[in-house]
Structure formats: structure tokens, C-alpha cells
């Protein structure tokens, strides 16, 4: 199996990538790790006429703290997100999500920017990044803009990225002390992709009450879904197992999950409650709650 023929450009700088993107527009696709795009091209589900390889563009990978946020370059491989000392220390929930993507080889090639831009509804990182309130830095020939995760993911494989834009980085606000985040995933037994998953960010008061909660679900719709009823049910409450279980039971409220041969909508609703509970409990523990 091999892709249809295409023209190939190895961009040497962001400026060059943007120039090429402007010149070839809809005929061109950006190439990062290639672990979504190349399989799709081999199956001829994607037949771009040109590929613009970002792989050699300097300055697009790595993890650093920038003010109140963690700045992650778009080309940072999943394996490097999973093993980054800063991420493991400050946002272990993000490292957890990166470490359950596919397998070792996939994590060595696939990139965080590619996963975000591809916006597969069964992907892991969009879910945890939505829970963490991340935003995405998009560069175009006319400058840069920053888009919040909620406004970025629109539907199945559809994002706010314009055809002339490159995603250059991800910004994740550093949680205050007394906060914890976690990710829990039910993987498909064959593909390893998400059947249902949940990401949670809990900010806990020293008294043990929940100051605020953000919970996002994967596999339930064309984009990561915020579990609004669960978040409201946690707000201001003591983070006891009973409160968490009751709040998590509302996770699928108002959702209309996508069904497939493996998981019915009803099954997904049930499972969403279980995985939301697990993610919230782990996040609350990381925030200092004894459960």
C-alpha cells in the first residue's frame, strides 16, 4: 500500500511553511508526525497534491514554562509530552493522556499539534486539553491568534484552523496550588483509540471543598464535550466519594453519543459516568483530597 503521488516540500522555517501554504492552499496539507495523515493517504482517504513537511522547522518542539502557562511546541512528540519532567510535575494528567495514546512507536512519531489539528473524536489529547482550558496558537501570514480549546474543536475532524494557518503551539494554564487533573480512558480493544474517556481539572479549597471543576468527555460527540451538569454538581461541595459519584452520574446528561458496532449510545452514557468518576477522583486526590 502506498499513497497517491504528491509533491513534497520540506519547510525550513515557519515563514516558508506559511508561504507554501498560501501558494498551494487547499491542494496542500501540512505533515507533522504523519501518524494520522500517512495511514489516510495509504488508504487513499486523503490525496493531497502537495505535502508541506513541518518536521524540520526549528523552534516548534519542546516544553517550557511561559509566565502562568505551560507552552508546548506543536511538533512535540507524544512520548516527549508523556516523559517531560515539567509536565509530570505540574500537569501529570496531561502526561497520563499522552502515555495512553496508541503504542510506543506511535508515541515516538505522533505530535501533539498533529493530534489537535486532526481533531479525531476518538483522540485523547483534545479531551484532556479541553478539561485543562488549553488554548492553541495559530500562525498565518498576517500574524498570530490564540483560540481556546472550546472554540477550536468544532466537529468530526473539523477545527477553527483556516487553510492558511499553522498551529505552532499549545498553551496550558498552570493550575494553582491545590488543583489536580487526571485522565481516564476506555480504549477500544482492537484499535486502542477512545471509546469513552474523561479528563478532569479540580481546584480544591484547603477545607476540602471543590472551588471549581472542569470535566470533558471524549468519544461522546464529534468534539470533546464539557460535562456541565457534573461540573455544577461539584461546585462548592465537599469532594467526598458520594458527592463525586452523584456528580459523575450526570456526566452524559444532554448528550447524544455517537454509536458504533462496538458501543451503543446507552452503553456510552453508562461508561461516561464511570470514567468521569475515575477521572474526578484521581484529580481530587492529586489536589490533596484523601479519598
Amino acid at each position: 500500500m502506498f499513497p497517491a503521488s504528491f509533491g513534497y516540500f520540506a519547510a525550513r522555517s515557519l515563514e516558508e511553511a506559511l508561504e507554501l501554504l498560501t501558494e498551494y492552499g487547499e491542494d496542500a496539507k501540512l505533515l507533522a508526525g504523519g501518524h494520522s495523515l500517512i495511514p489516510a493517504m495509504k488508504l487513499r482517504l486523503a490525496t493531497p497534491r502537495y505535502l508541506i513537511d513541518l518536521g524540520r522547522v526549528p523552534g516548534l518542539s519542546g516544553v517550557r514554562i511561559d509566565g502562568e502557562a505551560l507552552a508546548i511546541g506543536a511538533l512535540t512528540a507524544h512520548a516527549d509530552v508523556a516523559s517531560s519532567a515539567i509536565i509530570r510535575q505540574r500537569l501529570p494528567g496531561l502526561a497520563d493522556a499522552a502515555s495512553v495514546i496508541g503504542d510506543v512507536q506511535v508515541r515516538n512519531r505522533g505530535t501533539i499539534g498533529g493530534s489537535v489539528a486532526h481533531a479525531d473524536p476518538a483522540a485523547d489529547l483534545p479531551v484532556i486539553l479541553t478539561a485543562l482550558g488549553a488554548s492553541f496558537v495559530l500562525a498565518s501570514p498576517s500574524g498570530k491568534r490564540t483560540v481556546a480549546a472550546e472554540d477550536f474543536f468544532i466537529d468530526f475532524y473539523t477545527t477553527a484552523l483556516a487553510p492558511n494557518e499553522v498551529l505552532t503551539g499549545i498553551r496550558v494554564p498552570l493550575p494553582p496550588s491545590g488543583a489536580g487533573a487526571a485522565y481516564a480512558k476506555l480504549p477500544h480493544p482492537a484499535s486502542g483509540y477512545v471509546v469513552v474517556s474523561a479528563g478532569a481539572l479540580i481546584i480544591r479549597q484547603p477545607s476540602g471543598q471543590c472551588a471549581s471543576a472542569r470535566v470533558a468527555l471524549g468519544g461522546m460527540a464529534g468534539r470533546p464535550l464539557r460535562a456541565g451538569a457534573t461540573e455544577t454538581a461539584l461546585q462548592g461541595k465537599a469532594l467526598t466519594p458520594q458527592v463525586i459519584a452523584a456528580a459523575a452520574a450526570k456526566a452524559a446528561e444532554g448528550s447524544d453519543p455517537i454509536e458504533d458496532a462496538y458501543a451503543s449510545a446507552e452503553y456510552k452514557r453508562q461508561v461516561a459516568a464511570v470514567y468521569a468518576r475515575r477521572a474526578i477522583e484521581s484529580a481530587a486526590k492529586r489536589a490533596g483530597q484523601k479519598i
Binding site: 520540506a10 504523519g34 500517512i38 513537511d53 512519531r109
Partner: peptide, 20 residues
């Protein structure tokens, strides 16, 4: 599976041009 710069990767999912 082969190693690219010391990392295990699936070489059926990499273009030869990416190995430049």
C-alpha cells in the same frame, strides 16, 4: 519497527523523505 535517531518507529508509516 526500526530506530530513527534511537527511537522505535513503524517504518511503514514514515515516508523515506522524512528520514532525510
Amino acid at each position: 519497527t526500526i530506530h530513527m535517531n534511537g527511537r522505535a518507529v513503524k517504518s511503514c508509516t514514515v515516508l523515506a523523505v522524512q528520514a532525510d
